[in-house]
């Protein structure tokens, strides 16, 4: 079963150069680890919400606005899609995402058509 791990953090918290490098190192190690164990399906880091644009189609017309869909205290900064036996395994993978130490990881089951 697949789960999406949505990585939320506060974009305003600026890390020092060394801390940033350290975090990158941790993400690389973590990603390699779940690739090796076959749990990794996909994953990316996202650009900040300052670079987000929101599109809505109303009455057939596309309305484009600057910024994220919702203003929140923590912003979506990246994601993984992992293969896990059950929620407990997904949660234990989520707990190892380096960003979990500063932000929050939302764990969502990926919709299955034929459940």
């Amino acid at each position: 079963m697949q789960y999406m791990l949505l990585i939320y953090h506060n974009e305003k918290t600026r890390l020092g150069v060394e801390d940033e490098a350290q975090l990158m190192q941790e993400y690389m190690a973590f990603t390699q680890d779940i690739v090796k164990s076959g749990k990794f399906k996909a994953g990316d880091r996202l650009e900040t919400t300052a670079n987000a644009t929101t599109v809505q189609v109303r009455n057939g017309k596309a309305i484009v606005t600057d910024g994220p869909f919702a203003e929140t205290k923590e912003q979506l900064g990246g994601y993984y899609i992992v293969e896990a036996r059950d929620l407990d395994e997904a949660l234990s993978i989520a707990a190892r995402v380096p960003g979990a130490k500063h932000g929050s990881i939302e764990v969502r089951p990926v919709f299955q058509m034929n459940r």
Binding site: M1, R85, D86, L87, D88, P109, R115
Partner: peptide, 15 residues
């Protein structure tokens, strides 16, 4: 329980 697949088991020792 069904959708998120909350396991039907006794948790492992570490948790």
């Amino acid at each position: 329980i069904a959708t998120a697949r909350i396991p039907y088991e006794i948790p492992p020792l570490e948790v």
